[in-house]
Amino acid sequence: MQQLKNVLQLIKLGEKLKMELRHSWLSNGRRESVAEHTWRVALMAMAIEPYLHQKVNSERLLKMIIIHDLVEAYAKDIPAFHTMDNAEQKALKRQNEIEAIEKIRDILGDENGQAFYHLWFEFEDKITYEAKIANALDKLEAQIQHNEANIDTWLPIEHEMTFMLQKHTAFDPVLNELKDLIEQEGENKLLAANIDIQRLKENLN
């Protein structure tokens, strides 16, 4: 059956996420893969859903999380700090990822492929409550991983990014409270490394 061959091709594409490494390190000193990051974002969604104040479509939320980084099988992982203050790089990343999700849609070539396509755009454009949650958890998981890694693996820009999560969580009080816990862990880690926290915060104001 041709459609099952297409499904198998998509599944095999997923292996690339096991090999694609992020700019994040584990507590044992190993680089993190995209697949590992995605898995823990999904775990976070399952763990926090019962405590959210608004009803969530958990199936849609988990599907979005699983799909959102699949484009990196083609477009590669680009750390947030590479595009944060660079409009040209941000636009290039967006274009490469759109081309990637179009390829993924065309692998399946049916309504299921179209569903993947729409879910990815829903996540990227933060259209729904579920998309906003998925985006927030994506950012929070990255900071958790930084907090767990050796401070020597952090770049100076990542010292500042510890205190830049508010914009992703402000829409929901529960996520904002979780952000506060994660931010405090990051601050404690920076303080233990004798990083000037006050200067960092002043630079952000």
Rank of each mutant, 00 (worst) to 15 (best):
L155D: 09
K103V: 03
K76W: 10
R199V: 13
I104N: 03
A91C: 06
I195L: 09
L178C: 07
L119W: 01
F116M: 12
L137C: 06
Q143S: 08
E141T: 07
N194W: 07
F123D: 02
A192V: 13
A91W: 09
N96P: 00
F121Y: 15
M161R: 07
D85G: 08
T169S: 10
K167S: 15
K103S: 05
E130T: 07
P79Y: 02
L181M: 14
L119H: 03
L155R: 12
H159L: 09
V174H: 03
N194C: 10
H159E: 14
T153E: 09
E160H: 15
T83H: 01
I127H: 12
H146W: 11
L119E: 01
H118S: 12
L178Y: 05
N176S: 15
A91H: 09
L108S: 01
F116Y: 15
A73V: 06
N188M: 12
A149K: 00
I107T: 06
N96G: 01
E202C: 11
A131Y: 02
E187H: 05
I182P: 01
G186E: 00
A170K: 13
H146N: 11
G109Q: 06
K167Y: 12
M161L: 14
A80K: 10
A170R: 12
F123T: 00
L119P: 00
F163Y: 13
L191E: 12
I78S: 01
K139G: 01
A80C: 10
K179R: 15
D196T: 08
L108P: 04
F116A: 05
T153C: 10
W120H: 00
E185V: 10
F123S: 04
G109C: 05
L155E: 13
I78R: 04
H82G: 09
N176H: 14
Q89M: 14
E158G: 06
Q114I: 11
Q114E: 14
K90I: 04
E185P: 03
D196M: 07
P173Q: 07
A192N: 14
E202D: 15
F81C: 07
D77L: 11
I197K: 05
E148S: 11
I107P: 00
I107R: 02
D125Y: 12
A149C: 10
Q198N: 13
H168M: 10
L140M: 12
I101H: 02
L178F: 11
I197S: 03
Q166G: 12
G186Q: 04
E130N: 09
D69G: 01
E111L: 13
E148P: 01
K139A: 07
A75P: 00
I144C: 07
A131S: 15
K103P: 00
H146A: 09
I182K: 04
I78D: 01
F116N: 01
A192R: 13
A80P: 02
I78N: 01
K139P: 03
N147R: 06
I144F: 06
E102W: 05
I144P: 00
G113P: 02
I78P: 03
N150W: 08
A91Y: 11
T153M: 09
K201T: 07
L137T: 00
L140H: 04
E72K: 14
V71W: 00
G109T: 04
E185W: 08
K179N: 14
E141G: 02
A100F: 04
